[in-house]
Amino acid sequence: MLEIINLHARVGDKQILNGISLQVRVGEVHAIMGPNGSGKSTLAQVLAGHPAYEVTAGQATFQGRDLLDLEPEERARAGLFLAFQYPVEIPGVSNAYFLRAALNEIRKARGQEELDPIDFMDLAEEKLKLVEWGPDILSRAVNAGFSGGEKKRNEILQMAVLEPTLAILDETDSGLDIDALRIVAEGVNRLRRPDNATVVVTHYQRLLNYIVPDFVHVIAAGRIVRSGGRELALELEAKGYEWLTEAVPA
């Protein structure tokens, strides 16, 4: 589904990704871990097409298409979803309006009919259950005045509505208390299907107690320095990152 080969990227003059290669197949959950500043969030942003990052070398293919050649909105319409580490507030625009607008853009791209507000509300009410929320949240402005936990939950609600084929969760666990973490993780788990895939970017092992990965990759200095199964995350929890990152030249 996603194939990344030797990806290099920089922001301004600062080189951040130094040759990432990664393959994600349908049905899989990958965890990308690493210390602060290792480039793991940059990888997520580059895959979603953030304009601040410049890809200097390498390739990324998503369902057979050249991902790097697509605009961010084209990537979204093709089925890629990034749950933001810092979701943006959009005052005055209700969650319902925004979600329907996004869903209809994606449905149009898939050749499906747009949903009218009534059909949308039926669908949204189903999806709200996944994040254990009542309908009130739909009339609130997107993320405006939301707590950190509510913003992350809202990202998962968007993911539930948009049904991406590849979801990238960028530090979705940061700033969550244990209850919110459980709700968010359970939401993600219930959205898992044999025909989609999930990439979880995280600093901590904690989230992986809830969202169990098939593969764990450790990034340091913009490269994957170790890949393994779930046990690698537990090893990191016990030993920290130093034993893996010391060997990497800065």
Binding site: G49, H50, E73, P91, Q158
Partner: peptide, 23 residues
């Protein structure tokens, strides 16, 4: 970028963000 990452771009995105600016 947030809107684009949700598939919303062009005039619709401009409208939503301008509206939010006023709101």
């Amino acid at each position: 970028f947030y809107l684009k990452s949700r598939g919303v771009a062009g005039p619709l995105a401009r409208k939503i963000l301008t509206y939010a600016f006023a709101a």
